[in-house]
Write a protein that binds this DNA or RNA. Structure first.
Lengths: 344, 344
DNA sequence: TAAACCAATGCAAACGCTTGCACAAAATAA
DNA sequence: TTATTTTGTGCAAGCGTTTGCATTGGTTTA
């Protein structure tokens, strides 16, 4: 039946055209449900397409339409629960809107982020969803995309010098509330394990922490505010320092979920009881937090929600072609669990 | 300077060609470092390309070469730690080899898996990495790809009726060892919370469990082998049943990490102490397992390793064009933790 | 010095789809 | 009936690269 198949062995619209003795353009229009084609022809075309097992070649279509239906996602890593949820949310929304998702992780490396931008550029993505590395200061590597008016949506780790929608949470508020919660539960010597302060997210969290202490006329001891990369090594060192003090902290606000869990675990190895001797709350929530004993209080950052919002806003921007600098603030949630109830 | 830019506003090799008064084909060959082009010309071309900010259009290149440098990844979901690690491993290897990764989740739905295959087909991926849904029985939806000799590598949830490399662990062994470990620690009434038994992975795990009991002349009570979807609801129901028995199990082998964590948490709500009253070991390890108190024993399934192996094997298959039915067995690791030491 | 060869480049077709424009036939208006 | 519009299709160019096959001028061989 199918005789005129292409060189590559794929069925093309030409095969369908030949089979029906009509023009390829008619087939194309029929498959795209153009109003200019009669219902009868559409039926015939669809039937033959089905029979031959035709599947559109999106590469050719993309080239011709100058539109790939591809969304690029660039995140620091896939392994963190927050980003995995975000990615999942993005993918769901993209799929629903007929977009494919092409993904690359930067491993928190600025250099890799720069490289990835070139790849996304070459792939001619219709739009980009990005969460920056902790290292990223300059955004020059976005210029090529920006100049071409490729929509870029940033979430969580954003930078306002790149135009486009931003999906964020109020990190200042999150940290403020978390600290306030510790204070409300009787903590007097509260420490904060911060991330890289040159990254806005962590700067805001540190600020919220400081402000809460300030509002409550509690002292901020310099050694009680430690900035680090929040990996296991740094976390361990911070705890070592704090545990070596005569006046140990009686409460810690941790800037990431994973570090928070580590701290709970490390604390035990120092014979410290939670929450009795030490209350812990983390900025960022993982499923673990609720399963641990004691369960670990946290401020939940809605990863999936943020991912979905990013995708929805990106797709809208792609469709309207209108790049807006709107900021979408996603609500956070204080999850009070056993690690912070000294009275319990 | 750049005057002859294309309709789409992008810099093309034609722009470079015009600038240098040479043919586009020469530019193409120069940029691809063909031996037929003089070093002098290559230099000039590279210089102008750089100046104009040229980035190759992979869409056009793909169409022309009939090769997309795209790897499709199809997994049940991104949120599970195992699959997130696998995806991460895949992406790293793909990037290193110059491939892009396009990803779609099936949400454990066979129907969605079928749909996704069409998309991957249309996207003309050079190869596919797949982990099947629990529901998947037929593999007819792979036929279109198989017929076109598109390499397909399956990992973890595999089906041998689709040709190509398979990356797996020995689930029978994992479960056997886990059960054996419980028995070695004095458990007499061991239960198994299994997954969907029509899925080979879970069937093997159930078999390993049964065989271990058998080898040790321990009885297999019918109500002690429960198959379910391993979600929260099912896990809770299974525990409800077990906890209602006169003779409760004194050890449980759980077919997934997440269910294992849930069971530990649920057990406590029944006032059961771990490991005293009940030992728990899960097939699959998450970071949580080690942080919980007590820490939860597990058999580690190396997600990242499997993902990397999948990518490496896929890329090799793409390059050689030779689809082999090899099976790559990744080693598992029994992580003995506090949830299984009754004597401790 | 003519014949043969090689190195470097150009020409043009091809990849499979989309789309503006032209065109014929059919339907409507005058 | 003729003029005009509408409807459905076809033609062919174009998207940006790649690549087989000339072509050119220069170098080697006989």
């Amino acid at each position: 039946m199918a005789k005129g198949t292409s060189k590559s062995g794929e069925i093309t619209i030409n095969d369908i055209a030949k089979e029906l003795n009509i023009a390829a353009s008619t087939v194309s229009r029929a498959l795209n449900n153009s109003t200019k084609i009669s219902e009868a022809t559409k039926q015939k075309v669809r039937k033959v397409a089905e029979e031959l097992g035709y599947e559109i070649n999106l590469v050719a279509s993309s080239l011709s339409k100058n539109k790939t239906n591809l969304i690029g996602v660039v995140i620091p890593n896939i392994n963190s629960q927050f980003f995995a949820h975000a990615l999942s949310g993005i993918q769901e929304e993209a799929k629903a809107a007929g977009y494919n998702v092409i993904i690359s992780q930067t491993n928190e490396s600025y250099e890799q982020e720069v490289e990835v931008m070139k790849v996304m550029n070459s792939a001619r993505v219709d739009g980009l969803i990005v969460s920056l590395t902790m290292e990223t200061k300059s955004t020059d590597h976005f210029n090529a995309l920006v100049r071409k008016s490729v929509p870029i949506v940033m979430f969580d780790r954003v930078n306002f010098s790149v135009p486009g929608p931003k999906i964020v949470v109020d990190n200042y508020e999150a940290s403020f509330k978390a600290t306030q919660h510790l204070i409300g539960n009787g903590c007097k010597r509260i420490a904060h394990l911060a991330g890289n302060l040159s990254c806005k997210v962590f700067e805001d969290r540190a600020e919220g922490f400081k402000e809460a202490l300030n509002k409550n006329i509690l002292p901020l001891l310099p050694q009680f505010l430690l900035a680090c990369d929040l990996n296991e090594k740094d976390t361990r060192e911070a705890m070592k320092l704090w545990m070596s003090l005569d006046e140990r902290p009686d409460g810690i606000v941790v800037a990431s979920a994973s570090s928070g869990l580590m701290i709970a675990s490390i604390a035990r190895s120092y014979g410290v009881t939670i929450p009795g001797d030490l209350a812990i709350i983390s900025l960022g929530n993982e499923r673990c937090n609720e399963l641990m004993i004691p369960s670990i209080s946290a401020v939940d950052m809605p990863g999936s929600e943020m991912g979905k919002a990013a995708a929805i806003n990106l797709i809208e921007t792609i469709k309207t072609g209108h790049i807006e600098d709107r900021i979408i603030l996603k609500p956070i949630q204080l999850l009070m669990r056993n690690s912070t109830f000294k009275m319990a």
